[in-house]
Write a protein that binds this DNA or RNA. Structure first.
Lengths: 241, 241
DNA sequence: CGTAACTTTGACCTAAGTCAAGGCGCGTGG
DNA sequence: CCACGCGCCTTGACTTAGGTCAAAGTTACG
Protein backbone atom coordinates (compact mmCIF):
# COMPACT_ATOMS: atom_id res chain seq x y z
CA UNK A 1 0.00 0.00 0.00
CA UNK A 2 2.47 2.63 1.15
CA UNK A 3 5.77 3.16 -0.59
CA UNK A 4 8.74 1.36 0.99
CA UNK A 5 11.53 3.75 1.90
CA UNK A 6 13.95 2.56 -0.77
CA UNK A 7 11.42 3.56 -3.40
CA UNK A 8 10.67 6.91 -1.85
CA UNK A 9 10.77 9.43 -4.68
CA UNK A 10 12.37 12.05 -2.46
CA UNK A 11 15.43 9.87 -1.96
CA UNK A 12 16.30 10.20 -5.61
CA UNK A 13 17.00 13.89 -5.21
CA UNK A 14 20.65 14.89 -4.96
CA UNK A 15 19.63 17.12 -2.05
CA UNK A 16 19.25 14.19 0.30
CA UNK A 17 21.95 11.92 1.75
CA UNK A 18 21.89 8.29 0.74
CA UNK A 19 21.12 5.58 3.26
CA UNK A 20 22.57 2.09 3.60
CA UNK A 21 20.32 -0.94 3.04
CA UNK A 22 20.39 -1.57 6.75
CA UNK A 23 19.21 1.93 7.49
CA UNK A 24 16.48 1.71 4.86
CA UNK A 25 15.25 -1.53 6.38
CA UNK A 26 15.09 0.11 9.77
CA UNK A 27 13.18 3.07 8.40
CA UNK A 28 10.62 0.70 6.90
CA UNK A 29 9.99 -0.72 10.36
CA UNK A 30 9.93 2.74 11.86
CA UNK A 31 7.36 3.88 9.32
CA UNK A 32 3.79 3.13 10.23
CA UNK A 33 2.01 4.44 7.16
CA UNK A 34 1.10 7.45 5.14
CA UNK A 35 -1.33 10.23 5.82
CA UNK A 36 -3.07 12.42 3.32
CA UNK A 37 -4.53 15.69 4.55
CA UNK A 38 -6.66 18.39 3.01
CA UNK A 39 -5.65 22.05 2.73
CA UNK A 40 -5.91 24.02 5.99
CA UNK A 41 -5.83 20.89 8.14
CA UNK A 42 -4.00 21.41 11.41
CA UNK A 43 -1.56 18.51 11.55
CA UNK A 44 0.00 19.25 14.90
CA UNK A 45 -1.38 21.59 17.50
CA UNK A 46 0.52 23.83 19.87
CA UNK A 47 0.26 22.40 23.37
CA UNK A 48 -0.59 18.89 22.18
CA UNK A 49 0.71 16.10 24.39
CA UNK A 50 1.87 13.08 22.45
CA UNK A 51 1.66 13.75 18.77
CA UNK A 52 3.17 11.69 16.02
CA UNK A 53 6.27 12.05 13.94
CA UNK A 54 6.09 12.81 10.24
CA UNK A 55 8.15 13.50 7.19
CA UNK A 56 6.50 15.59 4.51
CA UNK A 57 6.34 13.61 1.28
CA UNK A 58 4.49 16.16 -0.82
CA UNK A 59 2.60 19.39 -0.47
CA UNK A 60 3.28 22.59 1.42
CA UNK A 61 2.45 23.83 4.88
CA UNK A 62 3.25 26.26 7.66
CA UNK A 63 4.73 26.04 11.12
CA UNK A 64 3.57 28.83 13.41
CA UNK A 65 3.07 30.05 16.94
CA UNK A 66 -0.08 31.82 18.02
CA UNK A 67 0.18 34.50 20.67
CA UNK A 68 -2.55 35.05 23.25
CA UNK A 69 -3.25 38.47 21.69
CA UNK A 70 -4.29 36.69 18.50
CA UNK A 71 -1.22 37.57 16.50
CA UNK A 72 0.64 34.80 14.75
CA UNK A 73 4.32 34.23 14.00
CA UNK A 74 5.09 31.91 11.12
CA UNK A 75 8.30 30.04 11.91
CA UNK A 76 8.88 28.36 8.60
CA UNK A 77 7.34 27.16 5.38
CA UNK A 78 7.05 23.38 5.36
CA UNK A 79 8.28 21.57 2.31
CA UNK A 80 8.85 17.97 1.18
CA UNK A 81 11.56 16.28 3.21
CA UNK A 82 10.86 18.30 6.36
CA UNK A 83 10.60 16.30 9.55
CA UNK A 84 7.95 17.40 12.01
CA UNK A 85 6.72 16.52 15.46
CA UNK A 86 10.02 15.84 17.15
CA UNK A 87 9.36 18.61 19.62
CA UNK A 88 6.32 16.78 20.95
CA UNK A 89 8.32 13.57 21.25
CA UNK A 90 11.46 14.97 22.80
CA UNK A 91 9.93 17.66 24.96
CA UNK A 92 6.72 17.70 26.93
CA UNK A 93 4.50 19.15 24.27
CA UNK A 94 4.50 20.91 20.92
CA UNK A 95 5.32 24.59 21.17
CA UNK A 96 4.03 25.46 17.72
CA UNK A 97 1.33 24.33 15.34
CA UNK A 98 1.72 22.81 11.90
CA UNK A 99 -0.88 23.36 9.22
CA UNK A 100 -1.29 22.11 5.66
CA UNK A 101 -1.66 24.82 3.03
CA UNK A 102 -2.09 22.53 0.03
CA UNK A 103 -3.09 18.92 0.12
CA UNK A 104 -0.20 17.05 1.73
CA UNK A 105 1.06 13.52 2.00
CA UNK A 106 2.95 12.67 5.14
CA UNK A 107 5.05 9.69 6.03
CA UNK A 108 4.05 8.65 9.56
CA UNK A 109 6.54 7.18 12.04
CA UNK A 110 5.93 5.23 15.22
CA UNK A 111 6.73 7.52 18.05
CA UNK A 112 7.36 4.54 20.31
CA UNK A 113 10.22 3.46 18.05
CA UNK A 114 12.10 6.73 18.42
CA UNK A 115 13.90 5.28 21.35
CA UNK A 116 14.86 2.20 19.34
CA UNK A 117 16.26 4.50 16.71
CA UNK A 118 18.56 6.11 19.26
CA UNK A 119 19.68 2.70 20.54
CA UNK A 120 20.04 0.82 17.29
CA UNK A 121 20.79 3.45 14.67
CA UNK A 122 23.26 5.97 16.03
CA UNK A 123 23.79 7.25 12.51
CA UNK A 124 20.15 8.08 12.17
CA UNK A 125 20.05 9.62 15.64
CA UNK A 126 22.91 11.82 14.54
CA UNK A 127 20.94 12.73 11.41
CA UNK A 128 18.00 13.69 13.57
CA UNK A 129 20.23 15.92 15.64
CA UNK A 130 21.59 17.42 12.43
CA UNK A 131 18.07 18.25 11.33
CA UNK A 132 17.20 19.92 14.61
CA UNK A 133 20.47 21.85 14.67
CA UNK A 134 19.83 23.04 11.12
CA UNK A 135 16.34 24.11 12.01
CA UNK A 136 17.73 25.97 15.00
CA UNK A 137 20.21 27.67 12.75
CA UNK A 138 17.47 28.69 10.36
CA UNK A 139 15.47 30.25 13.15
CA UNK A 140 18.56 32.16 14.21
CA UNK A 141 18.85 33.51 10.71
CA UNK A 142 15.17 34.45 10.69
CA UNK A 143 15.65 36.18 14.02
CA UNK A 144 18.54 38.21 12.63
CA UNK A 145 16.41 39.06 9.62
CA UNK A 146 13.40 40.27 11.57
CA UNK A 147 15.51 41.93 14.22
CA UNK A 148 17.97 43.74 12.00
CA UNK A 149 16.73 44.09 8.43
CA UNK A 150 14.35 46.50 6.67
CA UNK A 151 11.14 45.37 5.02
CA UNK A 152 12.75 45.27 1.58
CA UNK A 153 15.69 43.27 2.87
CA UNK A 154 13.37 40.85 4.65
CA UNK A 155 11.40 40.11 1.53
CA UNK A 156 14.59 39.79 -0.49
CA UNK A 157 15.89 37.32 2.10
CA UNK A 158 12.70 35.27 2.02
CA UNK A 159 12.60 35.21 -1.78
CA UNK A 160 16.12 33.88 -2.07
CA UNK A 161 15.70 31.29 0.68
CA UNK A 162 12.45 30.07 -0.85
CA UNK A 163 13.78 29.89 -4.37
CA UNK A 164 16.83 27.94 -3.27
CA UNK A 165 14.78 25.44 -1.28
CA UNK A 166 12.28 24.92 -4.08
CA UNK A 167 15.07 24.52 -6.63
CA UNK A 168 16.84 21.92 -4.51
CA UNK A 169 13.60 19.93 -4.48
CA UNK A 170 13.14 20.24 -8.23
CA UNK A 171 10.02 22.33 -7.67
CA UNK A 172 11.17 25.41 -9.54
CA UNK A 173 11.25 25.93 -13.28
CA UNK A 174 13.24 28.90 -14.49
CA UNK A 175 13.06 30.71 -11.18
CA UNK A 176 9.30 30.37 -11.09
CA UNK A 177 7.70 28.51 -8.22
CA UNK A 178 4.14 27.57 -7.50
CA UNK A 179 3.56 29.37 -4.24
CA UNK A 180 0.11 28.79 -2.76
CA UNK A 181 0.43 31.00 0.31
CA UNK A 182 -1.34 34.24 1.19
CA UNK A 183 0.39 37.56 1.61
CA UNK A 184 -0.71 37.42 5.22
CA UNK A 185 1.41 34.27 5.65
CA UNK A 186 4.51 36.04 4.40
CA UNK A 187 3.70 39.11 6.51
CA UNK A 188 3.42 36.91 9.63
CA UNK A 189 6.73 35.28 8.73
CA UNK A 190 8.60 38.55 8.42
CA UNK A 191 7.03 40.50 11.27
CA UNK A 192 5.44 42.99 8.87
CA UNK A 193 1.87 44.11 8.39
CA UNK A 194 -0.08 42.77 5.45
CA UNK A 195 -0.38 46.22 3.88
CA UNK A 196 3.29 46.99 4.13
CA UNK A 197 4.20 43.56 2.77
CA UNK A 198 1.98 44.20 -0.20
CA UNK A 199 3.48 47.60 -0.89
CA UNK A 200 7.03 46.36 -0.52
CA UNK A 201 6.33 43.49 -2.90
CA UNK A 202 4.97 46.04 -5.39
CA UNK A 203 8.21 48.01 -5.19
CA UNK A 204 10.32 44.91 -5.75
CA UNK A 205 8.16 44.02 -8.72
CA UNK A 206 8.70 47.50 -10.15
CA UNK A 207 12.43 46.99 -9.74
CA UNK A 208 12.08 43.72 -11.70
CA UNK A 209 13.41 41.63 -8.83
CA UNK A 210 10.45 39.46 -7.81
CA UNK A 211 6.88 39.09 -8.93
CA UNK A 212 4.34 37.20 -6.88
CA UNK A 213 1.00 37.02 -8.63
CA UNK A 214 -1.69 34.44 -9.24
CA UNK A 215 -0.04 31.92 -6.99
CA UNK A 216 3.33 32.02 -8.75
CA UNK A 217 6.44 33.54 -7.30
CA UNK A 218 8.96 34.54 -9.95
CA UNK A 219 12.40 35.43 -8.69
CA UNK A 220 13.88 37.44 -11.54
CA UNK A 221 17.18 38.31 -10.00
CA UNK A 222 18.17 36.07 -7.12
CA UNK A 223 21.75 37.32 -7.08
CA UNK A 224 20.72 40.93 -6.74
CA UNK A 225 18.22 39.95 -4.05
CA UNK A 226 20.91 38.00 -2.23
CA UNK A 227 23.07 41.10 -2.39
CA UNK A 228 20.29 43.31 -1.03
CA UNK A 229 19.64 40.95 1.87
CA UNK A 230 23.35 40.07 2.13
CA UNK A 231 22.51 36.43 2.38
CA UNK A 232 24.67 33.50 1.48
CA UNK A 233 23.07 30.99 -0.89
CA UNK A 234 24.52 27.54 -0.29
CA UNK A 235 22.07 24.70 0.22
CA UNK A 236 23.86 21.81 1.97
CA UNK A 237 22.92 18.20 1.41
CA UNK A 238 20.76 16.96 4.22
CA UNK A 239 19.43 13.81 5.78
CA UNK A 240 15.92 12.61 5.00
CA UNK A 241 14.17 10.68 7.71
CA UNK B 1 43.17 19.16 38.47
CA UNK B 2 39.74 19.53 36.86
CA UNK B 3 36.57 18.54 38.67
CA UNK B 4 35.27 15.04 37.87
CA UNK B 5 31.70 15.14 36.58
CA UNK B 6 30.15 13.54 39.66
CA UNK B 7 31.48 16.43 41.72
CA UNK B 8 30.34 19.08 39.30
CA UNK B 9 28.61 21.75 41.39
CA UNK B 10 25.99 22.32 38.68
CA UNK B 11 24.76 18.75 39.02
CA UNK B 12 23.56 19.49 42.51
CA UNK B 13 20.94 21.88 41.23
CA UNK B 14 17.40 20.56 41.00
CA UNK B 15 17.22 22.14 37.55
CA UNK B 16 19.39 19.43 36.02
CA UNK B 17 18.54 15.78 35.43
CA UNK B 18 20.55 13.21 37.35
CA UNK B 19 22.90 10.85 35.55
CA UNK B 20 23.68 7.22 36.25
CA UNK B 21 27.19 6.23 37.39
CA UNK B 22 27.80 4.72 34.00
CA UNK B 23 26.86 7.95 32.28
CA UNK B 24 29.01 10.00 34.65
CA UNK B 25 31.97 7.73 33.94
CA UNK B 26 31.46 8.23 30.24
CA UNK B 27 31.28 11.98 30.65
CA UNK B 28 34.59 11.94 32.49
CA UNK B 29 36.19 10.28 29.49
CA UNK B 30 34.42 12.67 27.14
CA UNK B 31 35.69 15.66 29.07
CA UNK B 32 39.14 16.83 28.10
CA UNK B 33 39.62 19.64 30.59
CA UNK B 34 38.52 23.04 31.67
CA UNK B 35 39.02 26.42 30.10
CA UNK B 36 39.02 29.76 31.79
CA UNK B 37 38.51 32.84 29.65
CA UNK B 38 38.60 36.56 30.27
CA UNK B 39 35.70 38.95 29.65
CA UNK B 40 35.08 39.79 25.97
CA UNK B 41 36.97 36.73 24.73
CA UNK B 42 35.44 35.24 21.59
CA UNK B 43 35.04 31.56 22.42
CA UNK B 44 33.60 30.40 19.12
CA UNK B 45 33.67 32.33 15.90
CA UNK B 46 31.02 32.43 13.20
CA UNK B 47 32.34 30.52 10.19
CA UNK B 48 34.91 28.55 12.18
CA UNK B 49 35.55 25.05 10.88
CA UNK B 50 36.11 22.53 13.61
CA UNK B 51 35.64 24.14 16.96
CA UNK B 52 35.33 22.40 20.28
CA UNK B 53 32.38 21.49 22.43
CA UNK B 54 31.81 23.16 25.78
CA UNK B 55 29.48 23.33 28.70
CA UNK B 56 29.44 26.60 30.61
CA UNK B 57 30.43 25.96 34.21
CA UNK B 58 30.35 29.55 35.41
CA UNK B 59 30.13 33.07 34.08
CA UNK B 60 27.94 34.71 31.49
CA UNK B 61 28.21 35.24 27.77
CA UNK B 62 26.43 35.99 24.54
CA UNK B 63 25.62 34.08 21.38
CA UNK B 64 25.20 36.33 18.35
CA UNK B 65 25.22 36.64 14.60
CA UNK B 66 26.90 39.53 12.85
CA UNK B 67 25.40 40.80 9.61
CA UNK B 68 27.56 42.10 6.78
CA UNK B 69 26.11 45.59 7.34
CA UNK B 70 27.69 45.59 10.78
CA UNK B 71 24.49 45.07 12.72
CA UNK B 72 24.35 42.31 15.28
CA UNK B 73 21.59 40.00 16.45
CA UNK B 74 22.02 38.51 19.88
CA UNK B 75 20.49 35.02 19.87
CA UNK B 76 20.69 34.25 23.54
CA UNK B 77 22.36 35.00 26.82
CA UNK B 78 24.71 32.19 27.79
CA UNK B 79 24.45 30.86 31.30
CA UNK B 80 25.91 28.00 33.37
CA UNK B 81 24.77 24.64 32.08
CA UNK B 82 24.48 25.79 28.47
CA UNK B 83 26.08 23.53 25.90
CA UNK B 84 27.85 25.24 23.03
CA UNK B 85 29.65 24.36 19.84
CA UNK B 86 27.45 21.52 18.65
CA UNK B 87 26.63 23.43 15.50
CA UNK B 88 30.27 23.36 14.46
CA UNK B 89 30.47 19.63 15.16
CA UNK B 90 27.22 18.55 13.55
CA UNK B 91 27.13 20.97 10.64
CA UNK B 92 29.93 22.29 8.49
CA UNK B 93 30.72 25.38 10.50
CA UNK B 94 29.46 27.63 13.26
CA UNK B 95 26.76 30.01 12.14
CA UNK B 96 27.05 32.30 15.12
CA UNK B 97 29.71 33.56 17.49
CA UNK B 98 29.96 33.03 21.23
CA UNK B 99 31.58 35.62 23.44
CA UNK B 100 32.32 35.79 27.16
CA UNK B 101 30.90 38.81 28.97
CA UNK B 102 32.28 38.04 32.40
CA UNK B 103 35.15 35.73 33.18
CA UNK B 104 33.95 32.23 32.35
CA UNK B 105 34.90 28.66 33.11
CA UNK B 106 34.06 26.11 30.45
CA UNK B 107 34.07 22.37 30.54
CA UNK B 108 35.78 21.19 27.35
CA UNK B 109 34.75 17.99 25.54
CA UNK B 110 36.61 15.98 22.93
CA UNK B 111 34.89 16.58 19.68
CA UNK B 112 36.24 13.30 18.33
CA UNK B 113 34.30 11.44 21.01
CA UNK B 114 30.95 12.87 19.96
CA UNK B 115 30.51 9.97 17.65
CA UNK B 116 31.28 7.52 20.47
CA UNK B 117 28.62 9.22 22.52
CA UNK B 118 26.04 8.54 19.84
CA UNK B 119 27.14 4.90 19.56
CA UNK B 120 27.63 4.07 23.23
CA UNK B 121 25.30 6.39 25.10
CA UNK B 122 21.97 6.63 23.34
CA UNK B 123 20.52 8.27 26.44
CA UNK B 124 23.04 11.03 26.26
CA UNK B 125 22.54 11.39 22.52
CA UNK B 126 18.87 11.82 23.24
CA UNK B 127 19.71 14.45 25.85
CA UNK B 128 21.79 16.28 23.31
CA UNK B 129 18.87 16.26 20.90
CA UNK B 130 16.64 17.50 23.69
CA UNK B 131 18.98 20.42 24.27
CA UNK B 132 19.04 21.38 20.61
CA UNK B 133 15.26 21.05 20.32
CA UNK B 134 14.83 23.25 23.38
CA UNK B 135 17.19 25.82 21.96
CA UNK B 136 15.23 25.74 18.71
CA UNK B 137 12.05 26.27 20.64
CA UNK B 138 13.54 29.22 22.45
CA UNK B 139 14.55 30.85 19.19
CA UNK B 140 11.00 30.35 17.93
CA UNK B 141 9.74 32.15 20.98
CA UNK B 142 12.24 34.95 20.46
CA UNK B 143 11.14 35.20 16.84
CA UNK B 144 7.52 35.53 17.89
CA UNK B 145 8.55 38.18 20.38
CA UNK B 146 10.52 40.29 17.95
CA UNK B 147 8.06 39.74 15.14
CA UNK B 148 4.84 40.36 17.01
CA UNK B 149 5.38 42.26 20.25
CA UNK B 150 5.86 45.95 21.10
CA UNK B 151 9.00 47.30 22.74
CA UNK B 152 7.44 47.21 26.21
CA UNK B 153 6.24 43.65 25.72
CA UNK B 154 9.64 42.57 24.44
CA UNK B 155 11.43 43.91 27.48
CA UNK B 156 8.81 42.39 29.76
CA UNK B 157 9.34 39.06 28.04
CA UNK B 158 13.10 39.24 28.38
CA UNK B 159 12.91 40.24 32.05
CA UNK B 160 10.72 37.30 32.95
CA UNK B 161 12.76 34.79 30.96
CA UNK B 162 15.99 36.04 32.47
CA UNK B 163 14.70 36.05 36.02
CA UNK B 164 13.37 32.52 35.70
CA UNK B 165 16.62 31.20 34.28
CA UNK B 166 18.74 32.92 36.91
CA UNK B 167 16.46 31.70 39.69
CA UNK B 168 16.62 28.10 38.46
CA UNK B 169 20.41 28.35 38.68
CA UNK B 170 20.30 29.83 42.18
CA UNK B 171 21.75 33.07 40.85
CA UNK B 172 18.92 35.34 41.96
CA UNK B 173 18.26 36.67 45.41
CA UNK B 174 14.85 38.22 45.95
CA UNK B 175 14.27 38.89 42.29
CA UNK B 176 17.57 40.70 42.00
CA UNK B 177 20.17 39.38 39.58
CA UNK B 178 23.70 40.45 38.85
CA UNK B 179 23.42 41.34 35.20
CA UNK B 180 26.71 42.45 33.67
CA UNK B 181 25.47 43.20 30.15
CA UNK B 182 25.19 46.51 28.32
CA UNK B 183 21.94 48.04 27.19
CA UNK B 184 23.23 47.62 23.67
CA UNK B 185 23.28 43.84 24.23
CA UNK B 186 19.63 43.81 25.23
CA UNK B 187 18.75 46.13 22.33
CA UNK B 188 20.47 43.76 19.88
CA UNK B 189 18.58 40.85 21.43
CA UNK B 190 15.19 42.45 21.03
CA UNK B 191 15.62 44.13 17.66
CA UNK B 192 15.34 47.60 19.19
CA UNK B 193 17.62 50.63 19.07
CA UNK B 194 19.74 51.43 22.09
CA UNK B 195 17.91 54.70 22.69
CA UNK B 196 14.47 53.18 22.54
CA UNK B 197 15.53 50.33 24.81
CA UNK B 198 16.78 52.86 27.33
CA UNK B 199 13.58 54.88 27.23
CA UNK B 200 11.37 51.82 27.49
CA UNK B 201 13.37 50.58 30.47
CA UNK B 202 12.86 53.98 32.08
CA UNK B 203 9.10 53.68 31.64
CA UNK B 204 9.05 50.20 33.15
CA UNK B 205 11.08 51.47 36.06
CA UNK B 206 8.58 54.29 36.60
CA UNK B 207 5.83 51.69 36.62
CA UNK B 208 7.77 49.83 39.33
CA UNK B 209 8.07 46.70 37.21
CA UNK B 210 11.82 46.36 36.56
CA UNK B 211 14.87 48.36 37.45
CA UNK B 212 18.20 47.76 35.76
CA UNK B 213 20.91 49.94 37.22
CA UNK B 214 24.51 49.57 38.26
CA UNK B 215 24.75 46.08 36.90
CA UNK B 216 21.77 44.72 38.84
CA UNK B 217 18.47 43.81 37.30
CA UNK B 218 15.61 43.88 39.79
CA UNK B 219 12.38 42.32 38.62
CA UNK B 220 9.80 43.83 40.96
CA UNK B 221 6.71 42.25 39.52
CA UNK B 222 7.38 39.17 37.40
CA UNK B 223 3.73 38.15 37.32
CA UNK B 224 2.59 41.48 35.98
CA UNK B 225 5.43 41.42 33.44
CA UNK B 226 4.46 37.90 32.42
CA UNK B 227 0.93 39.15 31.94
CA UNK B 228 2.10 42.11 29.83
CA UNK B 229 4.19 39.87 27.61
CA UNK B 230 1.66 37.03 27.89
CA UNK B 231 4.41 34.58 28.52
CA UNK B 232 4.20 31.29 30.30
CA UNK B 233 6.73 30.82 33.11
CA UNK B 234 7.50 27.14 33.55
CA UNK B 235 11.16 26.14 33.60
CA UNK B 236 11.45 22.41 32.80
CA UNK B 237 14.20 20.25 34.21
CA UNK B 238 16.90 19.75 31.66
CA UNK B 239 19.90 17.62 30.88
CA UNK B 240 23.39 18.85 31.65
CA UNK B 241 26.15 17.58 29.41
C1' DC C 1 -25.27 36.66 -9.38
C1' DG C 2 -23.85 37.28 -4.71
C1' DT C 3 -20.73 36.75 -1.28
C1' DA C 4 -16.52 35.57 0.89
C1' DA C 5 -11.64 35.50 0.85
C1' DC C 6 -7.62 37.95 -0.92
C1' DT C 7 -5.18 41.82 -2.88
C1' DT C 8 -4.41 46.55 -3.85
C1' DT C 9 -4.40 51.51 -2.99
C1' DG C 10 -4.70 55.93 -0.62
C1' DA C 11 -4.76 58.83 3.59
C1' DC C 12 -3.27 59.34 7.89
C1' DC C 13 -0.85 58.10 12.35
C1' DT C 14 2.54 56.52 15.66
C1' DA C 15 6.09 53.58 17.56
C1' DA C 16 10.47 53.40 17.11
C1' DG C 17 14.75 55.15 14.90
C1' DT C 18 18.35 58.70 14.37
C1' DC C 19 21.07 62.48 15.76
C1' DA C 20 23.25 65.04 19.05
C1' DA C 21 24.61 66.74 23.41
C1' DG C 22 25.50 65.85 28.30
C1' DG C 23 26.39 63.06 32.34
C1' DC C 24 28.75 59.88 35.05
C1' DG C 25 32.12 56.61 36.69
C1' DC C 26 36.58 54.64 36.08
C1' DG C 27 41.13 53.82 34.80
C1' DT C 28 45.48 55.64 33.53
C1' DG C 29 49.26 58.43 33.00
C1' DG C 30 51.38 62.91 33.67
C1' DC D 1 46.32 63.01 42.96
C1' DC D 2 43.75 64.83 39.69
C1' DA D 3 42.33 65.48 35.04
C1' DC D 4 41.17 63.83 30.72
C1' DG D 5 39.57 60.34 27.87
C1' DC D 6 36.72 56.47 27.12
C1' DG D 7 32.81 53.56 27.50
C1' DC D 8 28.31 53.53 28.68
C1' DC D 9 23.87 55.63 30.05
C1' DT D 10 20.43 59.32 29.66
C1' DT D 11 17.67 62.85 27.61
C1' DG D 12 15.60 65.93 24.17
C1' DA D 13 14.40 67.21 19.40
C1' DC D 14 13.26 65.66 15.18
C1' DT D 15 12.45 62.08 11.38
C1' DT D 16 10.70 58.03 9.25
C1' DA D 17 9.56 53.29 8.29
C1' DG D 18 6.06 50.86 8.88
C1' DG D 19 1.31 50.36 11.05
C1' DT D 20 -3.70 51.21 10.94
C1' DC D 21 -7.96 52.24 8.81
C1' DA D 22 -10.96 52.17 5.18
C1' DA D 23 -12.62 51.46 0.73
C1' DA D 24 -12.37 49.58 -3.79
C1' DG D 25 -10.73 45.78 -6.93
C1' DT D 26 -10.32 40.89 -8.10
C1' DT D 27 -11.17 35.97 -8.16
C1' DA D 28 -13.29 31.84 -7.13
C1' DC D 29 -17.16 29.51 -6.11
C1' DG D 30 -21.82 27.88 -4.72
Amino acid sequence: MTTPCHRCPLRRLALFDELSDDQLAFMDKFKSGELRVQPRTVILMEGARSPQLFTVLSGLGLRYKTLPNGRRQVLNFLMPGDFIGLQGAVMEEMQHSVEAVTEMTLCVFRRSELWTLFRMQPNRAFDLTWLVATEENFLGEALATIGQRSATERIAWASVRLLDRFEALGLARDRVILFPFRQQDLADTLGLSLVHTNKTLAKLKERKLVDWSEGYLTVYDPDELARIASVDREVPRRPLM
